[in-house]
Amino acid sequence: MTPHSNTRVDLVALFSACALFLSTIEYMIPKPIPFMRLGLANIPLIIALGLFSKREYFLLLLLKVLGQGLISGTIFSYIILFSLAGSISSAIIMLLIYTLFKDKVSRVGISIGGALGSTLSQLLISRLILFKEATYVIAPLFLFSGLISSIILGLAAQRFIVMSKWYQTMKEISV
């Protein structure tokens, strides 16, 4: 497949490349606690809502998860479960929120909702597999940091949608 041979798939590939790129940036940022994810790679997903069809959205999700697994090197470990659970639940919730509320919710709300789903499912898996009892101690920390980071990401995504000319052009092509 060559670029532009199929514009829609092309666009999904571009978005997923951005997700990969953001994953790399996130991987390089030193984290005081290893399992706290900033969720930078979610930004393409948040922006894709309203632009992509459901199938395209889920294709992007698949590519994003695969890419993240490759970059962080966790693709064959049980850590991929965390990433999968977090990404899938977050993506589904975000899609739900957007489909239910369309224009009545901004990217900020979508982002926060997604982060809630992601953090809760990751805490659940942590309780079962990795940290067990310790999860109860980490939980408040995870939840609060997830809340704050998702707000910032949501604001950034919202800003992008409003101000980017590239995005406007893509939107016109998509309608």
Partner: peptide, 30 residues
């Protein structure tokens, strides 16, 4: 910000409430 909506604030509050409630989990360990 002009673009923040009511739904945004509702979702935020839900998340915030859950975060605060999670502090009660400390009692299940001891």
């Amino acid at each position: 910000m002009k673009q923040l909506t009511l739904i945004d604030i509702i979702i935020f509050t839900i998340f915030l409430t859950i975060s605060i409630l999670s502090f009660t989990l400390y009692t299940t360990i001891s």
